[in-house]
């Protein structure tokens, strides 16, 4: 019985295309993980295996890279990922209130996803926008100078 393939032809060709930037195939490991995640939102064990074969690396070697980086997800995430900056300037400017609000509003803790699959809540270190603290990112969007009222409205924009 042949297992169904997870990575599409399009993904595979994108991964192979990234080889051209590097003298070694294994150097495209991080690029490959990014490409897989772009299409699947996270990197499953099966996808990781197929990627390892393309990179001509062992599965463990690819997994050791995948699990090292904060932004490669080895567990499924919701439709939107909230990254709350928990670093020092945001702490001074009201991080505690922001995170308390999110916990209450979404009913989840860090690392968890809402039951309707809408949001995953993660912390992130300094987003480099300290003069607009407190800040967070939802997917690719940066939201600055947050207050709980403002955040309430912002969340409504993500379905």
């Amino acid at each position: 019985m042949t297992q169904e393939q997870i990575l599409s032809e399009k993904e595979i060709s994108e991964i192979k295309d990234s080889f051209k930037h590097f003298p070694l195939k294994s150097a495209a490991c991080i690029e490959g993980l990014k490409i897989v995640q772009k299409y699947h939102r996270w990197v499953s064990d099966e996808a990781l295996k197929e990627l390892a074969a393309i990179l001509e690396m062992s599965v463990d070697a690819v997994d050791s890279v995948a699990t090292y980086y904060n932004l490669i997800y080895r567990k499924p995430v919701g439709r939107h990922v909230i990254h709350v900056c928990n670093s020092v300037s945001c702490y001074i400017m009201g991080y505690d209130e922001i995170i308390a609000f999110l916990r209450h509003k979404l009913g989840i803790e860090y690392g968890e996803t809402t039951a309707d699959d809408r949001f995953t809540l993660l912390s992130v270190s300094c987003l480099g926008d300290c003069d607009h603290a407190p800040v967070l990112m939802i997917d690719d969007d940066l939201h600055q100078n947050l207050t709980t009222d403002k955040l309430e409205k912002i969340l409504n924009n993500y379905e």
Binding site: F22, S26, E31, L71
Partner: peptide, 27 residues
């Protein structure tokens, strides 16, 4: 010249760890 976008880890800023990251390895 090309752009490499990291997948996040403070250590990536340390120059030798950065080079490991560019080689596709753990930073």
């Amino acid at each position: 010249m090309s752009l490499h976008i990291s997948v996040g880890r403070y250590m990536c800023g340390e120059e030798t760890a950065l080079l490991n990251a560019l080689e596709g390895k753990r930073a």
